[in-house]
């Protein structure tokens, strides 16, 4: 156990937690509004990574432009996925919607693997580093946090200050009642789905500035998102953000204290425990 490494690892984990939280917010937003668990979530994250790759390596632009582009592409992609794969079965039992999003997941993985191959990729981003008292924090990590917080803030502003956002929240609370009040619930569901995937792709884009990746990298982040979403409360975006911080911190701390390979065991054990003891999550689910 190396205590000297504990603080920097914990800080790093916490910073990473913001990005995890952003991804999880996307997943939980979709569930909270549409009651659908988006099994294509991981692939959305992976696609965000590749948008940054395309912008930085392909077009030679600043990678952070890619982050913005990822958000836009994510929004469009989510709406399309909803309309094509989910809308028709929105009221069907869970198995149907789960398999529908899983099918989308397969389609994306298949197409991406064929077109992009599974070779590892990386985007070189140098934003310097911040040094203080023996702790070094990479600039890319700080920028990622700033963007993640900004994105979360934008989401909140949208949900709570705009008419469209309030309509989405109405649909989340009670779809039938919302329709009676003249809200086009179908459009709101599509929009919510799009926002959710936009957040996922943005998170993926940020991760691309931090780590190397490949077409299949989405998987681990997807399961991490599930853990966070349950921890924070299904359907609760604030819970997802805080859950992300907790998981990030947990990872950072435990990686120093115990062998790295045990970290997933702890994460999943916590996951199952929360579902058993407090399924509504730490902050309560929006149901």
């Amino acid at each position: 156990m190396n205590l000297g490494a504990l603080l920097p690892s914990a800080i790093d984990g916490l910073l990473l937690g913001f990005v995890y939280g952003l991804a999880a917010m996307g997943l939980t937003l979709i569930f909270g509004v549409t009651r659908v668990v988006n099994l294509a979530h991981g692939q959305m994250i992976a696609m965000g990574m590749f948008v940054v790759l395309a912008v930085a390596s392909g077009a030679g632009l600043n990678p952070y432009v890619g982050v913005l582009l990822a958000a836009v592409v994510g929004l469009a992609a989510g709406v399309v996925i909803y309309v094509v794969a989910v809308d028709r079965v929105i009221n069907a039992p869970e198995l149907t919607t789960l398999l529908a999003t899983f099918a989308v997941n397969l389609i994306i993985i298949g197409t991406a693997t064929t077109l992009l191959t599974t070779s590892p990729r990386a985007v070189d981003v140098d934003m310097g580093a911040l040094r203080s008292g023996g702790v070094t924090v990479l600039g890319t990590h700080l920028v990622a946090v700033v963007i993640a917080v900004a994105a979360a803030g934008a989401l909140y502003a949208f949900l709570f200050r705009t008419r469209l956002g309030k309509s989405i929240r109405a649909v989340a609370a009670d779809r039938a009642a919302a329709e009676l009040m003249g809200i086009n619930s179908r459009r709101m569901l599509a929009l919510a789905f799009g926002l959710g995937t936009a957040l996922a792709m943005t998170a993926g884009a940020l991760l691309a500035t931090l780590f190397s990746f490949n077409v299949l990298s989405g998987g681990t982040y997807e399961t991490k998102s599930f853990v966070i979403v349950v921890l924070g409360g299904l359907g609760n975006p604030t819970g997802a953000l805080i859950g992300g911080l907790i998981i990030g911190l947990l990872e950072g701390v435990t990686a120093v204290v115990i062998p790295v390979s045990w970290v997933p065991v702890i994460e999943y054990a916590v996951f199952v425990l929360i579902l058993l003891v407090r399924p509504r999550g730490l902050l309560g689910s929006r149901q």
């Binding site: 398999l99 899983f102 989308v104 389609i107 298949g110 064929t114």
Partner: peptide, 11 residues
């Protein structure tokens, strides 16, 4: 394209 086709069929 195996996975893609499987996905489309499933959908």
């Amino acid at each position: 394209f195996q996975l893609t086709i499987a996905g489309v069929l499933l959908l």
